[in-house]
Simulated scan of single mutants.
Amino acid sequence: MAHRKARAAQYLAAGFLLASFSWAPSTFVSGPRRPERCRRSATSALVPDDAEVVLEDAEVEAAAGHQHCCTMVYLHGFSRCGPEYLPKGRLGFCMPWVPGGDRARGLRAVLPTASCLRQPWGETGTSWYGYAAPNHNRVGDAESLRATRRRLDSMVHAEVERLGDGRRLFLGGASQGCVMALDVYIRLAVELRLGGFVGSVGFVPTDSKGFTGADRALRCLLADSEQAVRPLWLQCAMDDFDAVPWRSVVAPSLRRAEGLPGLQIRQVAGRGHGIEDWEAHIVNDLLRAHAAYAYA
């Protein structure tokens, strides 16, 4: 309980809001750090120099002596890689598959790495899909998105078969990985009865952003009263003005999902797009609330 109380105090100090989604005005207090201005660039990402490492997928099995009872498929952001989320990786933080007080001992983590793609502005890096432009979040390469969808859909189906129960599989991710994982969740949740979703600094994918079929899939999810109550948690950086801007990208996308009873929005500020360990906190909080059995 001590670590949870400490986290609650940190949230209050940093200005967290966690509540069912509402369009009523909200206030928050910025954290101690000044907002960062971000650009979509692989040069700012802390990725390994070895290309073979960058392209590796990673997995973390349930802790020794504990039965696998829950899976999290978690996707990295643009120009990052799955192994960065391993226990000794730069993005491991206090994720629930990392040894320590937040370890969910029955959890298996699947941490895939995106393919290397050349973007229209000449940059090459790991990416779940090709962008339309460096300052735009729209999909610009439809075939790259289709290929990623096929790959991730197959992965999720295999994990559900392995578990024997879709309700024990959760999807999540950060930045571009948040958007991609949410696209997968929205399209497969009704069919596979998935457990839920948790992501940070992303937005709800829509047809207008190049995610063909996402609008229809979201309508199906909204119409399924049982699946619609499953948790869909998003952590949004209110002071992200460039990478995934709140006002122009995130907020408009959320209007399409505001009818979901399971939708919860956590608004944060003080770190810009690079929210660091806050990314891990919301993942832990969702699993403790909706997969407590994984901590037994």
Rank of each mutant, 00 (worst) to 15 (best):
V73L: 14
V73F: 11
Y74N: 02
Y74M: 10
G77F: 01
G77C: 10
G77P: 10
R80V: 02
R80L: 13
C81A: 13
G82I: 01
G82V: 07
P83I: 03
P83L: 01
P83C: 04
P83K: 03
Y85M: 15
L86E: 02
P87R: 12
K88L: 12
K88W: 09
G89T: 07
G89N: 07
G89S: 09
R90V: 14
R90N: 12
L91S: 13
C94T: 14
M95K: 03
M95S: 12
P96E: 04
P96V: 11
P96K: 02
P96W: 08
W97F: 12
W97P: 04
V98H: 01
V98T: 14
P99Q: 08
P99Y: 11
G100C: 07
G100F: 05
R103P: 04
R103Y: 10
R103T: 12
R103H: 14
A104W: 04
G106Y: 02
G106W: 01
G106Q: 05
R108K: 15
R108V: 06
V110C: 11
V110E: 13
V110K: 00
L111H: 01
L111Q: 00
L111R: 00
A114S: 15
S115A: 15
C116T: 15
C116I: 14
L117Q: 03
L117V: 03
R118L: 09
R118T: 15
R118Q: 15
Q119R: 02
Q119N: 03
P120K: 08
P120S: 07
W121T: 11
G122I: 04
E123C: 10
E123T: 10
T124Y: 00
G125T: 12
S127Q: 07
Y129P: 06
Y129L: 04
Y131W: 14
Y131S: 14
Y131R: 15
A132P: 01
A132T: 13
A133K: 12
A133C: 04
A133G: 04
P134F: 10
